[in-house]
Computed example of a mutant assay.
Amino acid sequence: MPSAKPPNDNHLQSVFAYRAFDLRDRFPQPLETFRQALECLQSGDAYLPDMSGEIVVYLRGGRALHIPEHFFIRQSGNISAVVPPQENDQVCEAVDAWLRDALLQHSKDALDASTIRPARLNILLDECDPNAPEPDDIQAWQHTSDVGREVIDTPCREDIWEAAVQAMGEVQARRWMKTSHPSLNNKSPNLCIEENLKRVYELVVQVGCGKANV
């Protein structure tokens, strides 16, 4: 009986890098594997990864794909949590199979990599050079002090998240943050936070007051 053919890994040749996102973008570096990105969200450095965690795979040619969060975030009722490390092998295998299919089918979900928050493709390229200086926007973010709600005229990410949870509940807030909205030029709040943080906060407040649709 002939042996089974090994899986075709040619799809991996189109993968440029991975990146993990949490609410405060504490992992700006490009990563070689999905497992490394997952371990970032599992680490103690991650900020509210169960509420805002995202993993993006960057493709050669300037495109990118969001890894579906159900692979690495478990949802049970109103409680969500990043998968535990002991499940990493299983999760990585599942993501690899999904990514292979998505690339073979030339997934229509692929986005222009320059629209993925907050890094641009040229930032990722620079960060692959260990001698390259950190971009100004990342330096500014890393040196920003924690800001409480007392400075509400200049809202921070935490203000937006807290207001969204209060207005919609945690589950709906997570979904809302990642869904395109007509009042944001059909972009998701997560993407628009980098462009106009105050506008996103105003929209959350309007939702809470019933003046805008979820």
Score class of each variant (00 low, 15 high):
3 S>G: 05
3 S>Y: 09
3 S>L: 10
4 A>S: 04
7 P>M: 08
7 P>N: 08
9 D>Y: 10
18 Y>S: 04
19 R>G: 07
20 A>E: 00
21 F>K: 01
22 D>M: 00
24 R>N: 11
35 R>K: 10
38 L>F: 01
39 E>C: 13
41 L>A: 03
42 Q>G: 06
42 Q>T: 06
43 S>I: 06
44 G>W: 08
45 D>S: 14
50 D>H: 03
52 S>V: 01
56 V>M: 12
59 L>I: 11
60 R>N: 10
61 G>Y: 11
62 G>M: 06
64 A>Y: 11
67 I>F: 10
68 P>N: 04
68 P>W: 10
70 H>T: 04
71 F>P: 02
73 I>K: 00
74 R>P: 01
79 I>L: 05
81 A>W: 00
84 P>M: 03
85 P>C: 06
85 P>L: 10
87 E>T: 09
92 C>R: 03
92 C>Y: 07
93 E>W: 05
97 A>P: 01
98 W>C: 09
101 D>H: 13
103 L>D: 05
103 L>I: 07
104 L>V: 07
106 H>D: 14
108 K>C: 03
109 D>Q: 14
115 T>E: 04
116 I>N: 01
116 I>Y: 00
117 R>V: 02
117 R>S: 07
118 P>N: 02
122 N>I: 00
122 N>W: 01
124 L>G: 02
124 L>E: 00
126 D>I: 01
126 D>N: 05
127 E>L: 12
127 E>R: 13
131 N>S: 02
132 A>M: 01
132 A>C: 03
132 A>R: 05
133 P>K: 03
139 Q>V: 12
139 Q>I: 09
139 Q>A: 06
141 W>I: 07
144 T>N: 06
144 T>V: 11
146 D>Y: 11
146 D>T: 07
149 R>Y: 07
149 R>M: 03
150 E>W: 14
153 D>T: 13
154 T>L: 09
154 T>Q: 06
156 C>V: 12
157 R>L: 08
162 E>C: 08
162 E>V: 08
163 A>Q: 15
166 Q>N: 12
168 M>D: 03
170 E>L: 11
176 W>H: 10
178 K>T: 15
178 K>P: 02
180 S>P: 15
180 S>E: 15
180 S>N: 14
181 H>G: 09
181 H>E: 06
183 S>H: 14
183 S>L: 14
186 N>L: 12
188 S>T: 15
189 P>F: 13
192 C>N: 13
192 C>L: 13
192 C>H: 13
195 E>C: 06
199 R>E: 15
202 E>R: 15
203 L>K: 12
206 Q>C: 13
208 G>E: 08
208 G>N: 12
209 C>W: 08
209 C>N: 15
212 A>N: 12
213 N>T: 15
213 N>D: 14
